[in-house]
Design a protein around this nucleic acid. Sequence first.
RNA 1: GCGCUAGUGGCUCAAUUGGAUAGAGCAUCAGACUUCGGAUCUGACGGUUAGAGGUUCGAGUCCUCUCUAGCGUACCA
Length: 564
Amino acid sequence: MQIKSKLNNIVNSALKANGIEIEEVVVNEATKVEFGDYQYNGAMALAKKLKTNPREIAQNLAKELDGNSIFSKVEVAGPGFINLTLDKEFLEQNLLNTLNNRAGVSKLNNPIKVVVDYSSPNMAKQMHVGHLRSTIIGDTIANLFEFLGDDVIRQNHIGDWGTQFGMLVAYFEESGANVDAKLSDLEQFYKEAKQRFDESEEFANKSRQNVVRLQGGDAETLKLWSTFIEKSLAHAQDIYNSLNVKLDSSHVRGESWYNSQLSNIVKDLETKEIAKESQGAKCIFFEDSENPIIIQKADGGYLYATTDLAAIKFRVQELGAKRVCYVVDARQAEHFKQVFQTAKDAEYANNDTKLEHIAFGMMLDKSGRPFKTRSGGTVKLKELIDEAVDRAKGVINRANEYSNEELEHIAKVVGIGSLKYSDLSINRQSNYIFDWDKMLSLDGNTALYMQYAYARINSILTKAGDIAETEPTLGDELERRLALKVLSLEDTLIKAYKEAMPHIITSYLYELATLFMKFYEQNPILKDGVSQEQKESRLILAKATANAIKVSLNLIGIEVLERI
RNA sequence: GCGCUAGUGGCUCAAUUGGAUAGAGCAUCAGACUUCGGAUCUGACGGUUAGAGGUUCGAGUCCUCUCUAGCGUACCA
C-alpha cells in the first residue's frame, strides 16, 4: 500500500484546517528510529514563506494530526520537525493484504506506455562484459515498470548495420569461408577482416561497396548478412536465457530496421533548418557545445545519431511512448542530450514525452581499471556467467545434501543471482568495482544473504504447517517495524520507478532481511512457551516478509530457493 | 584547450533529492550457542564528506574557485 501518499493527504488536510494551502506535501521516512516512522519537515519552509514561527506552525499542525487514529504518536521536535509514529492497529489491519502474489502492491492509477531500450549488443561478436550492465539494469526497470502497470515495450537496438558488415561480407567472399561457421569463428573472421581493412585500401573499398550493396538491398549480400545476424542473435538469446532476462526475438529492432527511414530524417531536418552542411557533412550544431552531431557523412553514409533520431520518432509517434528510457553507458551522455534536444526541436517528441538517458558507469576491476582478462582482452559474458555458477558451487554449505541436479540448479540461481545483485545493488551512475569474493560473500547486502533469509523463513513455515490467516497482533517494537517495512514495499517501488534506480529495491531488501533476522533472533515462533496468538502473528509476519522478498527479488530478475 | 561526471572511515557502498548526532557491510577487536537452519545476532573501534570560500534557520547535497581521477571531444557505435 502507498503509505506516504496517504500521509501526504492527511498532512494536507491538517494544513488546510490551519488555513494553509500548498502545492505539494511531502512526508518522508524518518531519518532515525528515535524520531518515529515518518517526518514532515515542511513547517520550516512554510514559516519562511508566511513569515511566522516554524515551531508554532508545527505545533498547530501536530494538534490537528494527533486526532487521527492512524498515529500513535505525533510530536514536534527541534526547529519544527513533526515526527509521526504509526499506530500498531493500522499496520495489523493491513498486513494480511500483503500475502498475495503482488505483496500487496497495487498498480499505478495512470499507467503510461514506456519504451525501454537496453542490451543492444553488436552483432558478429560475442557479448562481453560491456553489455552486462545495460542488459540487467534495463531488464530490471522494464520488469518494475511492467509490475506497476505500465505498458512496457522492450527494444533491443542491436548493432546490425554499417561498415563492419561490409567488411565481414568482403572477407567471406575473399577467403571463401563457410557461412555455416560458428559464432566464435565469426568473431575470428571479424578480427581478420578488420586487419585486412586497415592494411589494404582495395579491401577497404570493397567493404564500402558492400555496405552500399547492403543498403541498396542486394539479395546475395543480404543473405550473407542475415546469416551473420541469425547466428549472433542465437548466441545473445542463450545469454539472455541464462541471465533470466526477458528479452526475445520479438524485442529486436536493430539499426538495420531504421535504414529505410534515414534519408527522410535528414531531408526533414534540413527542411526544418535544424541541420546544415559543414565540411561536406550534414550537421546539427548546439549553442552550448562546440561539437555538432553528424547525421550524414560527406560520403553520404548515415550515422548512429541519424538512427537514434529515427528510433525516437518511431517510438513516440508509432509506438505511442510517453517515456523512453535509454539504458546506455554514461559516456554517451552528451550524445543523448543532443539527440533528445534535436528530437524536441524537430517535434518528433513533444514536451510531455520523457526522453531519459538511464546512464550507468563502467565495470572496473579491484584496482580500478577496466575489467579485462589477465591477458588484457575483453571478458566474454558467457565465460563470466560460467565462472559465477562455478564459483557458486564452492560456496554452498550443504552441498552433500543435494543431488547433482539440485546442486546444479542451486548453483545457477545463486551464481547468476549474485552476479546480478552485486551490480544492481549499487547506484548505477557510479562506476562498478567488480569483485568475485565480495559478490559471493555470505554477509552484507548480497544475493546470498537474501536467499538465505528466504530459505530460512521457508523452513519455519514448512515446519509450522498451515497458517491461520487472521489479523495479527503485533508485539514488540521490532515486530511493529518489520510489519511497517513489509507494508512500505509499494512506496519503495514507486521511488525506484520514478528514478529508474534498481539499487533502491536492493536497499529495501537488505533492510527487510536484516530486520527480520533481528526480529527472529529475539522473538521465537515455534518454540515452547509461545502463546498461540503470538505464534500465529509471528508466522504471518514471517510469511509476509518471505513474500515481499520473493516479489522484490523477482523484480530484479532473481529467483528464490525453497532450500539452500 | 574545452566540456561532462565523480571524489564520503583502511576497503566496498548508502544517505528519502536542502533536514536533526553522515548510516551499513567488509576488515579488526570483544561478546551471545545443548541453533524454531549460527550462512545468525549484540557490541566496540574507525569521518574536518578532497580543499577553500559563499548562499540560509539548516549543506555530503546548491553556487564559485582550486586540486585529483575517469570519460567525451566532426564524419565508429
